[in-house]
């Protein structure tokens, strides 16, 4: 499925891309399916099982889509974190330029 990128460079991963938007659409849908599916399944209603199963499958799909990108974003950002933390502390203590 080359339509979904799973091999990211740090620079590309920093952009908001199709993979983010697909995740943004799927994620609330998964919550609906898990919540409603669990509720109905507890009353042994067949539609509940189907809904719950759809929620589980979409959860897997969502992670398959977004996880490689999140890994690259995280790895790249952690390299810069120490500098940013120092700036933050200076700002909190009004040291240097408070902007």
């Amino acid at each position: 499925m080359s339509w979904i990128c799973r091999d990211w460079t740090p620079a590309d991963a920093d952009e908001w891309t199709r993979e983010d938007w697909i995740t943004i659409v799927i994620s609330p849908l998964v919550y609906v399916l898990l919540m409603v599916g669990t509720g109905l399944s507890l009353f042994l209603i067949p539609a509940g099982y189907i809904t719950l199963a759809a929620g589980v499958v979409l959860t897997g799909l969502m992670h398959w889509i977004i996880d490689p990108k999140l890994k690259v974003i995280s790895g790249e950002y952690e390299k810069k974190q120490r500098d940013y933390l120092e700036q933050l502390e200076k700002q909190a203590r009004w040291e240097g330029n408070n902007g």
């Binding site: 983010d20 995740t23 943004i24 994620s27 609330p28 998964v30 919550y31 609906v32 919540m35 977004i66």
Partner: peptide, 11 residues
Amino acid sequence: FFAAWCAISAF
């Protein structure tokens, strides 16, 4: 379902 703000917020 108000808690579902996390669906989009998480990403």
